[in-house]
Design a protein around this nucleic acid. Sequence first.
DNA 1: TATGAATGAGTGTTCATTCAT
DNA 2: GATGAATGAACACTCATTCAT
Lengths: 199, 199, 199, 199
Amino acid sequence: MAKIKGWNPEIKRQKILNSAIQILNRKEYYQCPIDEIAKNAGVAKGTVYLYFKNKEDIYFSVLINLIDKVIDIAENVQKNDLPAKKQLFLLLQRISNFIDTYRHLFLSIRQEVKPPKEKLHDAFHRKIGELIKAISAIIESGVKKKELKSYPGIVLATIFLSLTSVIAHQKIEVGKHKIQQIDISPELLFKIFMEGIER
Amino acid sequence: MAKIKGWNPEIKRQKILNSAIQILNRKEYYQCPIDEIAKNAGVAKGTVYLYFKNKEDIYFSVLINLIDKVIDIAENVQKNDLPAKKQLFLLLQRISNFIDTYRHLFLSIRQEVKPPKEKLHDAFHRKIGELIKAISAIIESGVKKKELKSYPGIVLATIFLSLTSVIAHQKIEVGKHKIQQIDISPELLFKIFMEGIER
Amino acid sequence: MAKIKGWNPEIKRQKILNSAIQILNRKEYYQCPIDEIAKNAGVAKGTVYLYFKNKEDIYFSVLINLIDKVIDIAENVQKNDLPAKKQLFLLLQRISNFIDTYRHLFLSIRQEVKPPKEKLHDAFHRKIGELIKAISAIIESGVKKKELKSYPGIVLATIFLSLTSVIAHQKIEVGKHKIQQIDISPELLFKIFMEGIER
Amino acid sequence: MAKIKGWNPEIKRQKILNSAIQILNRKEYYQCPIDEIAKNAGVAKGTVYLYFKNKEDIYFSVLINLIDKVIDIAENVQKNDLPAKKQLFLLLQRISNFIDTYRHLFLSIRQEVKPPKEKLHDAFHRKIGELIKAISAIIESGVKKKELKSYPGIVLATIFLSLTSVIAHQKIEVGKHKIQQIDISPELLFKIFMEGIER
DNA sequence: TATGAATGAGTGTTCATTCAT
DNA sequence: GATGAATGAACACTCATTCAT
């Protein structure tokens, strides 16, 4: 039988991926049975294995998918012809919003370190590299335009990314009350990143 | 009669804890069977349950134990009567060394977000609070002495802690080669934190 | 698509149930690992959990299944248009035979008292109620026809059921010799139930 | 060191036994850890093993202890020089009261059938035999005095004992309501045993 | 005699993965 | 391709029993 006209395996793959993103954003990896991801995607368990090699593959695909979204944000920000400083602040704000939705997974990205299976992890790290590059591009344009001090773009991008996790740790509720009373606004964070804390 | 002369439960508890620290620093929580932790500590599985309520209890005890070590570092640094700035830099260096040994677990600390059991997690968060306080103390003394700009100590401590994870992400080897070529030294990181990046 | 043609979950469920009946009839509940029940049924341990929620579910399902068999006996006996007295005797005989095969489980039925999980136990007790009703029906027809004294059917059914356990305790072998030399035949038991022992 | 004057191992044994009776009357055998029995008796776990060979030994000792109490009841009743019928009724009443306290264990006695270890079970069955004998004695005196029909005492005693379990099954609460509405009083039960149900 | 820390076999349950349909 | 029944390895946790003190 010929393929159904217009049938696209990518669509179903994405459906499963989106389901996985939801589930994995709620709980730890080991608390997310494939079956739950499948049901949530409206497909059978076996179907998941037609699109992903195994559970880890799903996991890293989710992370990569998420990083892609952040890369998109960075690239969109860069298209503006605002000053680099403004772009960077905009980026921080948008990532901050992004984190509101994907906090748990976002922190997973930052945390992921030791992979059982090399291949998957390599792809993941290459993707992280891409993200750093995308942020780096904004920064380096700022360096070029003398808006920013001339540190290597990659270095600053790495630090910038690290700062975003400050945002992610805000507003985490424990029990029924926030545990950290302080709210570090993107504005404040950005100011400190720009000006430092030394008098 | 009851307690055997010289028997000390804390010693064995610590032995198990140290074993758990080793194992949990190597792999994810769900990949660390209690049995492995026990064997590694030189005791039987059942013995672990004499000292810890369950696996989660071990996990959070490990994290708390680790945070305690960092708190110790911070408190020791503070005892010097060096300028706050120097203290802060010293702290960054020492945490950097600390991370060399406990990288994976250290990142777990930063990442820990969704706890199944409230009680354990509350204790964990209180401990994180203590750590922030300890770092904050150093910073506030710097603010008082006009070495640092007058931001709230807790805010800066939170950001400072976040920066340490930049260190943790350095030098992560994937496969047989570093994935990130850049090396962000504590010196560089500190300079940026102090002076900002804006020209 | 979904269900394979001819696949019938009831058949496999029953297969597992029958296996469980065999095993549980031989030893105490806590001495019957799920794994043994599974192997005996020719399936894997995991398969058991596709058909039963947990071990208790198996246990109560077994008991209910067994009571159903006794209810069937009672209902079949009632279909005869023999006098109630004859029916009652027939019932005693048939239950007596039934007990030969399911002695241990039959005594479990009588003994079951303290349930950890309400739901399962409720179903079990409802089933016991059904059995009492079925026996009661025979007795009440006898009361109506003035064959029997006019006690409430449920009362007499309860007592009747209790008498059957006299049968169950017969012929229990301990070591290699019967422990109770006496044999109380269904005939004798029935006679006493009918006529009493008072002179 | 000499034995402490008046120290009696039987006293401690009995203390443990009483504790075990309490615990085992509440839950199933397999749900009663030795440790709980020990704590409840105010001794250490190890101590239990100085007085009992293993858990089964405790269990059968408990049952035997309980049967002894019923034997005592029977023997006390027999000492009266009431008519056998009155004695039998008295016995039923007293056992009924006894059951109020030891219902769960009492039903265990009736149910116990398949023992893993021969020796312990033999002792148990011999004790059951004693009980039957004690009840039998009352009955046979009644037979001799022509109060009762001349069935073998053992047979009637066995049936009599079986009837007591009707009492035990009364008033069992399931959820929050009695499951069996009927209350079969000792009086009614006795009347039926005496006179039968045939018209 | 008494203790209770230590043991490790045992078991209920979960869940990633496979494969016949 | 899609399904979901079947599998069985894996693992947390319990608890009877032992034994050094």
